[in-house]
């Protein structure tokens, strides 16, 4: 692949998904796109680039974006963000939303479903305290391919052993040969929709809790700032945002600020939240 071909792929991926690739990602691009070549019976990467430039093969274009934006994940990944949900956020909103009895959660980069299903299992475990509540879990991802896997809720033995406690595996999965399928009652708690974060998402409404982990790291600074600004707009005044361990809002937006106690948790800045409250009551 020539420098020009690589540059074209970088520009294409940036425009389509916001993905910012440096020269050090060249190996990753080649190894992932070679698999796309095989699937679409394209002989070489330069030929793939030529086909993309022609702009007539939309399924190939989608496959290229999906191949580069799909990342491995696992149940209860990093543990901390899920402990925060169970021990901090759920008690907080059980109290502050006691009259409305409604909680809206958004997993903005849901991938193959492990994150939303992990949250759904925690909600289910808290069902005694949530009796009579309407808990929505919206799960979105740019890749329709990973969303299909998420919707199917069928995981390999390897996948269910990474982060999923054995008690929860027994309780919420059913064995199908060598694979494990998520229980229908957990599957039904999650609404999956395709969504590209670099495009407008205001129509999704306002959320109490937003998980947007390990996706901002792939964006350049202006895209990060833009996505964070719009995420803040999609959060309730006392809403919570959870980012990945390598991500932050610092230096990117004044609308969000880190929680002083809980690492990885962000809320609306006092000023931004007040402005919203005033606007809502006006």
């Amino acid at each position: 692949m020539t420098e020009l071909d690589f540059d074209y792929l970088c520009t294409f991926l940036k425009a389509r998904s916001g993905l910012a690739l440096g020269a050090e990602k060249r190996y990753l691009v080649e190894s992932r796109l070679i698999q796309v070549c095989r699937r679409f019976e394209v002989n070489t990467l330069p030929e793939l680039v030529t086909t993309l430039k022609a702009g007539r093969n939309h399924s190939l274009e989608n496959a290229v974006v999906e191949a580069m934006t799909t990342n491995e994940t696992f149940f209860f990944r990093d543990k901390g963000p899920f402990d925060l949900f169970r021990d901090v956020l759920l008690p907080r909103y059980l109290n502050s939303r006691a009259s409305a009895r409604r909680l809206r959660i958004w997993c903005a980069a849901a991938s193959t479903g492990q994150e939303p299903y992990s949250l759904a299992m925690l909600v289910k475990e808290a069902s005694a305290r949530l009796a009579g509540w309407n808990v929505e879990i919206l799960a979105t991802d740019i890749s329709t391919e990973v969303l299909d896997k998420a919707k199917a809720g069928l995981y390999s033995q390897f996948e269910v052993q990474r982060g999923l406690p054995i008690q929860l595996l027994l309780k919420y999965f059913k064995q199908e040969g060598d694979q494990w399928r998520i229980a229908p009652e957990i599957r039904a708690m999650v609404d999956y929709r395709p969504l590209n974060l670099i495009k407008e998402f205001g129509h999704l409404g306002v959320f109490d809790i937003v998980y947007c982990r390990n996706v901002l790291i792939y964006f350049d600074k202006p895209t990060k700032t833009d996505v964070l600004r719009r995420l803040a707009n999609a959060m309730a005044p006392d809403g919570a945002l959870l980012l990945g361990a390598a991500e932050t809002v610092l230096g990117l937006t004044d609308g969000l600020s880190p929680d002083p106690v809980n690492r990885g948790l962000y809320g609306k800045s006092a000023e931004a939240a007040t402005t919203l409250r005033v606007a809502a009551s006006a």
Binding site: F74, K79, F158, Q161, R162, G163, P165, I166
Partner: peptide, 11 residues
């Protein structure tokens, strides 16, 4: 693999 053993030991 190591990831699985690590996850289970953490659990």
């Amino acid at each position: 693999d190591k990831d699985i053993v690590t996850a289970k030991f953490q659990e």
